[in-house]
Design a protein around this nucleic acid. Structure first.
Length: 450
RNA sequence: UCCCAAGUAGCUCAGUUGGUUAGAGCAUCUGACUGUUAAUCAGAGGGUCGGGGGUUCAAGUCCCUCCUUGGGAGCCA
């Protein structure tokens, strides 16, 4: 016998049922009426559909109940599907029966405007609104595109642990928790080190999951919990790594364009800017980027003794901040990869450039339209002694990295990888104003509810 | 952590140099309406002006303090 759920009908499939009677199950998005004629805008998660209730064709007592329906009340609607250009979505239901499941009372989010704080406090309900719904659908597509891209290109998914015994890059702050009798455990801020071990086993791998950072960042592009995909490839050098990063980003954007036209339209996104996201992207070295900053008189802003000072020309060796990155990106309509950063500003595991030991084989991809940094990656140091020296220089606990050093002791090979921030990419593609709109339940410095 | 801004009805906001009983739109409730789609029209209810302290004959309005929220910086994906 076929499962009952397979007979359920959804708004996204209405075109298949023109002229037929269907039962839709959903919620009242909005209701308008004109006396004997009532219009219910029903949403069921797959779309919206106008349902028309005409009093003379309807049970009188039930019609009074329909008139009192409120926003977000849940109901089952039975009626005949017809094509109707006046209806949002293009289809309409001529209703002959309605079963009210629950009458909502005082739904807080109205069709009118609301403030940021109010909406985020009601995130569990805000997700129902058209705009958030569209962003979540695109997020789902981005995640599917990521998985498809790697799965179809010979990569094996190798999950990294969320609970870890130590920092992967000593500097950032970590969330701490108790772990039985073994002392403290930390929530992972990156799966990379485990990714490297996995790559030595499987060749090409990716790890995909949440990452946690206890940074006190309060900006529109930071979350304390965010999703990151981190491929790691044995025998890939920095150029291979950059090529792969470009292929991935191109694939994600083109996939969303293919399957989310309706959502992009809802969001009023300028599609032409996304259609343009095709390889080749742009590349420049850190040193070339500094030359550009110097030529264009972009200063370094730094705080010295609590006072903000501007330093020109921009000194080689300083890391870029948001002002520098945005200035550079203004000239580009596609992502830009900046590579070969000064050794001192980057992580201990990155491999120095054999042609210039002052820089490491690192790369960051910056998105256009103020998307910011969407990818950070590098070729890793594969030499045992060099890596051990770096761990000592950075004053990291040597014991904690024994297993990581083992990877250089037993068949160490050149290898590379990167991390791509899912929410940053979703923010860029959707044009969302704030990263909190790109994840169902955002975790931020001053908010953990709902 | 640092800098800036804001807290007035369920929501979004207005509220003059301090001065009668603090206002509007939306939402809610009541009524009218056969094509609405942020429906419209008529009526009604709804307030510890973020908390505490102070100045004053008088404070939503001025001062101090605390709390909450938003934006930005640094750090990063």
């Amino acid at each position: 016998m076929e499962s009952r759920y397979k007979s359920y009908k959804y708004i996204e499939d209405l075109e298949k049922f023109i002229g037929q009677e269907v039962t839709l199950q959903g919620w009242v998005k909005n209701k308008t009426g004109k006396g004997k004629l009532q219009f219910i805008i029903l949403r069921d998660g797959t779309g919206i559909c106008q349902c028309v209730v005409y009093k003379p064709n309807f049970d009188e007592a039930l019609f009074e109940e329909v008139k009192s329906l409120t926003q977000e009340s849940s109901l089952k609607v039975t009626g005949t599907v017809k094509k109707e250009d006046r209806a949002p979505g293009g289809y309409e239901i001529d209703v002959n029966n309605i079963e009210i499941i629950q009458l909502a009372k005082d739904y807080p989010i109205t069709p009118k405007e609301h403030g940021d704080a109010f909406l985020i406090e009601h995130r569990h309900l805000w997700l129902r609104s058209t705009r958030q719904h569209a962003i979540m659908r695109i997020r789902a597509s981005v995640m599917k595109a990521i998985r498809d891209f790697f799965d179809n290109n010979g990569f094996v998914i190798m999950d990294s642990p969320m609970l870890t015994p130590n920092a992967s890059e000593g500097t950032s702050t970590l969330f701490e928790t108790k772990y039985f009798d073994l002392g403290n455990a930390y929530l992972s801020q990156s799966g990379q080190l485990y990714g490297e071990a996995s790559a030595m086993a499987m060749g090409r791998i990716y790890t995909f999951g949440p990452a946690f950072r206890a940074e006190r960042s309060k900006t529109r592009k930071h979350l304390t919990e965010f999703w990151m995909v981190e491929p790691e490839m044995a025998y890939f050098d920095l150029n291979d790594d950059m090529d792969l990063a470009e292929d991935l980003v191109e694939y994600i954007v083109q996939y969303v364009l293919k399957v989310n036209q309706a959502e992009l339209k809802t969001l009023e996104r300028d599609i032409s800017k996304l259609e343009n996201i095709k390889r080749p992207f742009y590349r420049m070295s850190y040193t070339e980027a500094v030359d550009w900053l110097v030529k264009n008189n972009i200063p370094l802003k730094k705080k010295i003794d609590g006072k903000e000072v501007e330093i020109t020309p921009f000194p080689w060796g300083e890391d870029f901040g948001t002002p520098q990155e945005e200035a550079i990106m203004e000239q580009f309509d596609k992502p830009l990869i900046i590579h070969r950063y000064p050794t001192d500003v980057k992580a201990f595991y990155m491999k120095p450039d054999p042609e210039n030991s002052k820089v490491v084989l690192a790369m960051d991809m910056l998105g256009p339209e103020k998307a910011g940094e969407i990818i950070g990656g590098s070729q890793r140091e594969e030499d045992y002694d060099n890596l051990l020296n770096k761990i000592k220089q950075h004053k990291l606990p040597e014991e904690a990295f024994q297993w990581y050093l083992d990877l250089r002791k037993f068949g160490g090979v050149p290898h590379s990888g990167f991390g791509l921030g899912v929410e940053r990419v979703v923010k860029w593609i959707t044009g969302a104003a704030h990263i909190r709109e790109t994840i169902p339940f955002p975790r931020m410095i001053y908010r953990i509810v709902p």
